[in-house]
Design a protein around this nucleic acid. Sequence first.
DNA 1: GAGCAAATCCAAAGCGCTTTGGAATTTTGA
DNA 2: TCAAAATTCCAAAGCGCTTTGGATTTGCTC
Lengths: 343, 343
Amino acid sequence: MNLKELSQNLGLSQTTVSRALNGYPEVSTATRRRVEEAARTFNYSPSTRAKGLATGKALAIGHVIPLSSKHEMVNPVFGDFIAGAGETYSRNGYEMILSIVPDQDERRIYQGLKSRRAVDGVIVHGPVMDDPRIPLLHKLGLPFAVHGRASVNETPYAWLDMNNRNAFKRATDFLFDLGHQRIGLVNGLEFMDFAYRRRNGYTVSLSDHGVTPDPDLMRSGEMTEDFGYVSARQMFALDDAPTAIICSSMISALGVRRAIEEKGLVMGKDISVISHDDVLSYLKNGGDTPIFTATRSSVREAGRQLAQMLLDAIENPGRAPQTKLLEAELVVGTSTGPAPRKD
Amino acid sequence: MNLKELSQNLGLSQTTVSRALNGYPEVSTATRRRVEEAARTFNYSPSTRAKGLATGKALAIGHVIPLSSKHEMVNPVFGDFIAGAGETYSRNGYEMILSIVPDQDERRIYQGLKSRRAVDGVIVHGPVMDDPRIPLLHKLGLPFAVHGRASVNETPYAWLDMNNRNAFKRATDFLFDLGHQRIGLVNGLEFMDFAYRRRNGYTVSLSDHGVTPDPDLMRSGEMTEDFGYVSARQMFALDDAPTAIICSSMISALGVRRAIEEKGLVMGKDISVISHDDVLSYLKNGGDTPIFTATRSSVREAGRQLAQMLLDAIENPGRAPQTKLLEAELVVGTSTGPAPRKD
DNA sequence: GAGCAAATCCAAAGCGCTTTGGAATTTTGA
DNA sequence: TCAAAATTCCAAAGCGCTTTGGATTTGCTC
């Protein structure tokens, strides 16, 4: 069923039917109802392609997910982020176009999306500190919004970020308050902007407490379970092992816990652990009481909000780029406790 | 830059330029080269929408991901599956359109995709035993391919599945060979087809070994870490606790391990665990030697192959639906060992 | 009931591409 | 050398929609 057939069926012109369906005022309420009724029974909806051609809008947003070329890894956070963004899109009649590409091909993909006019805008995932995509997208004139930030950047752009620095500073402060002095950091890859900021929050807290950062206590890598395990093991093997570990992801935190238990220690007593919790749907932080003390910020909510920001920006092209900083909350679970007393 | 401008620039007609770019034979090699060259320097690629309108193809595949309405959970497997499928699409010039929808809305979404002519076909995720989407898509005449199978179904359709029944039968057999008699199952939701088949393989093995299935040893639920933990705890509280547990997902297996260690037991000695491993990028099964003995089958590879099957089906509409059954391999890790002797 | 504004509708152009049916040019064969 | 065949190109129609500019009808006012 297409517009032509539908309008013939109703004995109306295509113009009128189109206007009725798109809420234009030049149509009487009676005909509008008739048209809507008919559209429903014939299961008609306008072809996205034709509509897009006629209006010049794609009614679609592109998500370009970089695939870590080293580990072929898809960020586990992305499923929930996408779910959040998807809610916003479907509420606003947009479609989501997804490209998962080896990170070295990203440039080409953005150019392609632009020149094929496939999307009205894109979401940028996983920004690194000096991210080349931001100037690129500016140059292309393709509206975009970034999940996270790029520290090194002149021109303003739209972003939504969690306050990584503050979250990790608070977590570290919290451990100091419990009496810990040797605190390890199991971080993500530190050319990623979020990881850089987290380390920054961590080291600032250390300095505040008169502690010099110890490279042996600072690991950085792709946040798998195994990475958490290996990192913790290495730290425990030190002469002056940490009594607490801060971890950038729940998944690596599970690895950290494995290392703790393997050593016959008890988490929350012998070793304290704080993790960042993205509130992933399949990785709830325990049941009723949280297992891990955690800095918590829902990545799904981030998806919802950032998508909305991008749609707003597309509809108001003049306006200055919006930005938004979300604060993580610190939830206290059973994985932290006072520092064990030295014998 | 559009076709018109490009052809004016070259002093050719739009027809010729279009043909040159699409590999039609009515164009001399010299002009073709000229055209390709120009397209490259002007960064021209045809508008997907216009092309789609003209050809009647969308050059896009839809993925409709059901969002569990109960737990608002996105299947963690989906990121890797999508990554695999995405590889296939980009190699073939297709786009991936993603909708994440509350499972009760799925029907409407498929109808929308069809009537808006937004996609050439769809991938069906997470089939349940008697899946209504299969007859619906047949009725709509929208090409589709299913990741998994629906047990209750008359008409043939394209699918790719892992041999769940066989994998879990082998896993159970393996535990029997090690002398275990009380074997627990921590399964996914059993209206999901894969989970049903897995339980089936498990019970068949039990019968083969003259053991009657014990409801107390069979849990079914959304496969989170916590679910694994809670399930294992409950089993351990039994008078006649199991000496081995088979688990449907690595994530729940981590929960099972937590319960084991909490009880002060050693996995692989006091309790054996076998998990299914989807080879998710962020959840490697240990480093060099696998931690969990596991039935292994890469879900990313499944994505690659199923996407290809769908594209083939779209290009050869006449042909009978293809199907493919992948066998999981059984990798032996440190999480299994001989059944502890009764004292 | 004439005159005018408001309400309601329509024909046709245009969005950027592919493709049909021909026209123009070059090459070939005898 | 000249007709036929092969090569190379083009104008125009059509894909399904939106939107402009205009035509027609209806409702009011006096």
